[in-house]
Design a protein around this nucleic acid. Structure first.
Lengths: 258, 258
DNA sequence: CGGAAGCTTGATGTGGGTCAATCCGTGTGG
DNA sequence: CCACACGGATTGACCCACATCAAGCTTCCG
């Protein structure tokens, strides 16, 4: 059986929720009553705004969890769209691929975030979702979710807000890719990760990146060597301290001014 | 009074819908029964999937149209979010601005497309929407729309699909910005405009761009000089013929192979 | 313990940015 | 109606940020 520590082993300890018992990969794909209520990610996850009654209805459609091993895909581009997924533990990248094989990483996703919304419009996914570490997700069957949205106004609102949030996130990435220098891109990437770690109760100054330099490059629109050089530069300038994937942000303000 | 010809004056004539009578800027901001039913953009617009009953309910919440003159904004970043907008005639760009003043155009939008979905998540817009020519939009008050979504399953589905479509559109732009050469970006831009013109019943091979080279550059992540050079190159190579903003695509297949 | 994957760093090349001159089309005012 | 001014487009010369290529190093994992 696994618990969150497996995924958080080399990340600074969470300041909030201690490792609560998790549902594990018990016999069948784990249907457990009151999953959301007991989930340590609840405050960061989709049903955050639901009242007790809606939450329990939401809970009842989240029929299973699924384990995805590091490097495996949760779904692939062109897979038929059945469900969206809430990350329970671990992390993912989403990737769109060009015909010539070049990859654009469209996002790195942490626990509590939702994956798969790209599939709604065509009933097929348009990206791959790959686990960056052994991870688990809650499976939210879309048809049921959509039916429930029709009944719970709050859930409908939450759903629309989540989608809109994704639109806004992607616009700001377009700005990063379209207007910023390599140095600025890496700096904003670090600040972004930092704030998301903080929001999850981890240290905003010290964390482990789960992706390779190449994956960062494919996200930030640059080559892995450039990512590496920028890390070296920030280290020389005393903004961060890096040791492979371990990052310590030394001067967060200066990083913001880059 | 205006009609669609005002906006389409120097665009190749539509092969489908002829200029139907439009609601104009009559006395008060034009509340007209059955707007959608008679709108020539209906087939390209949001309510495309609705049945008669839902359509009439939808119609009844579309309380007004609004005229936006070329260069004026429909909304600005940080404006409080009240409505989304369906473009009835004309075209817009949406822009996110960096603190240092650099602009990223996040999209060019034609008749039938929806603007303003970025505002749902924070109740404030995160981008500017600027008319590229004198244009008119249908105002769809969001609170009413959302209430109606709770009653019409079809409308709810349509709304979620529209948002998901926007997410997918933006991902593919991220790929363009992150992985493609200047030449490829301009080529895909032209192909994209071409297919959208075609979908609206205009010639896919010959059209007028409504934006400046600089605006294209701010969309494609390059400088206006580079945009211009790419146009010249395509012309030398016999792929397109350009005369200022007028574009004729000569070899669409070759453009796709760039 | 060995090999592969990932990371860093240096040397060199180049796509596109920058700067600047000129051209063109359009709207304006005499 | 023409001249002119101005915003936009084109083109050239030069430069620089980042890509590419290459070598060596570190870390991880079987």
């Amino acid at each position: 059986m696994f618990n969150e520590a497996v995924f958080a082993d080399d990340i600074a300890a969470p300041s909030a929720a201690p490792a609560t018992s998790c549902t594990g990969r018990a016999s069948k794909p784990a249907r457990v009553a009151q999953q959301c209520t007991t989930c340590s990610m609840r405050s960061a996850c989709m049903p955050q705004t639901l009242n007790a009654q809606d939450l329990s209805r939401f809970d009842s459609i989240v029929s299973a969890t699924r384990i995805v091993k590091r490097g495996d895909s949760l779904y692939r581009a062109n897979d038929s769209f059945q469900s969206i997924y809430a990350i329970r533990a671990g992390s993912f990248k989403t990737v769109v691929m060009h015909r010539d094989g070049r990859e654009q990483v469209t996002g790195f996703h942490l626990a509590g975030e939702v994956l798969g919304l790209d599939g709604v419009c065509t009933e097929r996914h348009s990206s791959d979702a790959i686990a960056l570490e052994d991870s688990s997700v809650c499976i939210i069957p879309y048809e049921l979710l959509e039916a429930l949205c029709a009944e719970s106004r709050t859930l409908q609102q939450q759903m629309l807000r989540t989608m809109s949030g994704e639109i806004v996130r992607e616009s700001s990435l377009m700005m990063l890719l379209g207007t910023m220098s390599a140095e600025q891109r890496v700096a904003s990437f670090l600040l972004n990760v930092s704030s998301r770690m903080k929001a999850r109760g981890y240290s905003p100054a010290e964390f482990n990146l789960r992706m390779t330099r190449e994956e960062m490059g494919n996200f930030l629109g640059m080559k892995l060597e450039t990512v590496s050089r920028m890390f070296s530069k920030f280290q020389r300038d005393g903004l961060v301290h890096t040791h492979g994937k371990q990052i310590r942000i030394v001067d967060i303000d200066a990083l913001g001014r880059v």
